[in-house]
């Protein structure tokens, strides 16, 4: 089943005399239960693409279908409901409301959805158990380390049991141990709950947790790599593709598996 369909999307920024084409007629699809990585050189348009697919931004031209709905045609009023029911997010840095404690951050949206209290408590128990947040529930965001924050963010995004999870460089500010934990967890829920995940990353090691990597360059689809064998093989394939696209970083070549 189609989860995401991007149809001939273009996005330009700026006025006429200094127009930036961030996305240039890009099209692709993601099926339900896929774990897709998006890679490409800096400035390729990854964040822009993610923003458009996740209803944060609007494309200049083109359409995006999410869970069968054409989100590019939805009015803001319906978008709120749609987001609540279908989408989860993990950003690189700002993920939590600083005024609320960890548990309040986790249950805030749910309690506004009028989901029964027992159900909310059940999910809270489940995710805090899984993401190892039990001791942190009563703390406030400014009392957490960045890795802890990121785990809370993942839990927050998953509490609504979204159909699709978007993540923009979620491991960008994590040390390798925390990053690995988070990624392993994402891989688990992808398998267990059939949550579709789309993740933007620079890092080949992070990307190697995905099933498929979409490479974009200069705002257009460049190529894709599908995982067939072991993670190590996939990792090497990714690195080769990065070298071909010309956007790899030295650190990516270090074998960290």
């Amino acid at each position: 089943m189609r989860m995401v369909e991007v149809k001939q999307v273009s996005k330009s920024f700026g006025a006429r005399n200094n127009l930036v084409r961030a996305l240039n007629n890009i099209s692709f699809t993601i099926d339900r239960g896929e774990f897709v990585g998006v890679m490409g050189p800096s400035g390729a348009g990854k964040t822009t693409l993610l923003n458009i697919m996740s209803t944060i931004d609007h494309p200049s031209v083109g359409r995006v279908y999410l869970a069968g709905q054409e989100i590019t045609a939805l009015p803001e009023r319906d978008l709120a409901t749609f987001r609540r029911e279908n989408i989860g997010f993990i950003f690189q840095d700002f993920n939590l409301l600083p005024a609320l404690s960890v548990s309040e951050n986790l249950i805030m949206v749910l309690s506004m959805l009028k989901i029964p209290r027992e159900e909310v408590q059940k999910r809270l128990a489940y995710y805090s158990e899984h993401l190892n947040l039990k001791q942190l529930l009563n703390r406030y965001p400014n009392e957490l380390s960045i890795g802890q924050k990121q785990r809370v963010a993942a839990a927050r995004a998953l509490m609504t049991q979204p159909k699709i999870l978007f993540a923009d460089e979620p491991t960008g500010s994590l040390d390798s141990k925390s990053a690995t934990e988070l990624l392993q967890y994402l891989a688990t829920i992808n398998l267990e709950n059939e949550t579709t995940i789309m993740m933007v990353t620079h890092d080949a090691f992070t990307a190697s947790y995905c099933n498929r990597i979409v490479f974009i360059k200069d705002g257009a689809f460049y190529s894709e790599v599908v995982r067939s064998g072991s993670r190590q093989q996939f990792f090497n394939q990714i690195i080769d593709m990065q070298a071909a696209i010309g956007g790899g970083k030295i650190s990516d070549f270090r074998n960290r598996d």
Binding site: F94, V109, R156
Partner: peptide, 16 residues
Amino acid sequence: RPELGLMIISGLSRSQ
């Protein structure tokens, strides 16, 4: 601003 953005994408409606 960042908080408002987060609330929007968490699915709170503008009126909320």
